[in-house]
């Protein structure tokens, strides 16, 4: 009897958990639909932005402009590297947070002067526990990315780069490589690099920058970084919902499997209890007869 009770309470707890995972699956799949819609709307912009910037850098003439400053006088290990790490606000999204954080930690091994700007509560808590220096003022949520938020983030990063508080700026986020495959990625944002060798190899001429290359870059680069961060936030949000949906679906399925197994065990225990009872009665009755 004891085992039957145990199995039953076990089944109940599995069922309760399943209710939660199933609800989370439904929520994340509806959020996912929304995120996917904005991703589909923004992806052309994001892709075109990256390819156009690539094109522009290919055709840019030499210029003295702050966004191209490589600051080579600073040794490799001492460079101040800023990382914008995009994580989720909540856990239970499979390996989503884990993958981004692991990639960030790998990148951070490059030097000792790391400055972290973390989006999303999970990443913030993780790095806080690890005693990594993170910017405490940098409080942004990962949910429902807006252009306004991207603009603020871009402005603060550009400001730090201009003030020489950062020498290199990277973004670490999760990209939806295909509609079914999120993958963590690192992108260098600043400084920009002219592709001199590539240009010479392809024999491409300099384009005309109007009114002057410096002025164009002054306006263009902040705009590009803002667009880039907006795209990154949207990609990351969609990846998060996708990862959570997949994780919760798997959890619900394995809960179903567990219930099936437990039910079998329970029935077996019940059957053997009945058999035992019958054999007890029979043997008792036969004992009375003699």
């Amino acid at each position: 009897m004891a085992t039957m009770n145990k199995i039953q309470s076990r089944m109940k707890s599995v069922k309760d958990i399943m209710k939660i995972t199933n609800a989370m699956y439904l929520i994340s799949s509806s959020k996912m639909k929304k995120a996917r819609k904005s991703l589909v709307a923004t992806e052309p912009y994001f892709d075109k932005l990256l390819s156009t910037i690539n094109d522009i850098l290919l055709r840019a003439p030499h210029m003295h402009q702050i966004f191209f400053e490589r600051r080579e006088e600073i040794p490799y290990a001492k460079r101040k590297r800023g990382y914008l790490v995009v994580t989720a606000d909540k856990g239970l999204a499979g390996a989503y947070n884990h993958n981004v954080i692991r990639l960030a930690e790998e990148e951070m091994k490059k030097g000792t002067n790391n400055y972290l700007f973390v989006i999303g509560q999970v990443g913030r808590h993780y790095f806080f526990r690890k005693n990594v220096m993170i910017d405490g003022e940098f409080l942004y949520t990962a949910q429902n990315p807006t252009l306004y938020r991207a603009r603020e983030i871009a402005e603060s990063l550009i400001h730090l780069f201009k003030e020489k508080q950062l020498d290199e700026v990277y973004v670490i986020y999760t990209d939806m490589v295909t509609p079914m495959k999120p993958e963590p990625k690192v992108l260098r944002v600043l400084p920009l690099e002219r592709k001199k060798l590539e240009r010479r190899a392809h024999n491409i001429h300099h384009a005309h920058f109007y009114p002057s290359p410096e002025q164009v870059m002054d306006g263009l680069v902040p705009n590009y970084i803002k667009g880039l961060i907006f795209g990154v936030l949207i990609e990351a949000y969609c990846s998060e919902q996708y990862s959570r949906m997949v994780a919760m679906e798997a959890a619900t399925n394995s809960a179903k499997d567990m219930i099936k197994e437990l039910k079998l065990l329970y029935n077996r225990a019940r059957q053997s209890a009945i058999t035992q009872e019958i054999s007890e009665i029979v043997s008792g009755a036969s004992g009375l007869k003699h």
Partner: peptide, 18 residues
């Protein structure tokens, strides 16, 4: 454009501006 209106016709030279 940065300093007033800017027009582009076919076969414009290669250019980047804000």
């Amino acid at each position: 454009g940065l300093d007033g209106e800017f027009g582009i016709l076919p076969n414009h030279e290669e250019m980047v501006t804000c």
